[in-house]
Amino acid sequence: MTRTLGRSAVPVSRLAFGAAGIGNLFSAVSDAQAEEAVTAAWESGVRYFDTAPHYGLGLSERRLGAVLRQLPRAEFTVSTKVGRLLVPHDGGGDDLAAGGFAVPATHRRVWDFSAEGVRRSLEASLQRLGLDRVDIVYLHDPDHHAEQALDQAYPELERLRAEGVIGAIGVGMNQAELPARFVRNTDIDAVLLAGRYTLLDQRGLDELLPLAAERGVGIVIGGVFNSGLLADPRPGARYDYAAVPAQTLDRALALKEVCERHGVPLRSAALHFPFAHPAVAAVLVGTRSAAEVADTAAMLARPVPESLWRELKARKLLAADVPTPEEVD
Rank of each mutant, 00 (worst) to 15 (best):
R14H: 12
L15F: 08
E35L: 03
V38T: 05
G45D: 12
G45Y: 00
R47F: 02
P53S: 06
G58T: 05
A66W: 02
V67A: 08
V67P: 02
T80M: 09
L86E: 09
D90N: 14
D90T: 11
D94E: 15
F101Q: 09
V110W: 06
W111E: 15
G117N: 11
L122W: 10
S125G: 07
R128V: 02
D135P: 07
H140S: 04
H145P: 01
A149Q: 05
L150A: 07
E156N: 05
R161Y: 07
A168V: 00
D187Q: 14
V191W: 00
L200H: 12
R203Q: 15
R203F: 04
L205G: 06
L208C: 10
L211Y: 07
A212T: 03
A213Y: 01
S227D: 12
A243K: 08
A243Q: 13
V244G: 04
R251H: 12
R251V: 03
L255M: 10
C259Y: 02
C259G: 08
L271A: 07
H277S: 04
V280R: 02
A290K: 01
A290Q: 03
A294M: 05
M299A: 14
L300A: 03
L312I: 02
A314Y: 06
R315E: 15
D321H: 11
P325T: 12
E327R: 08
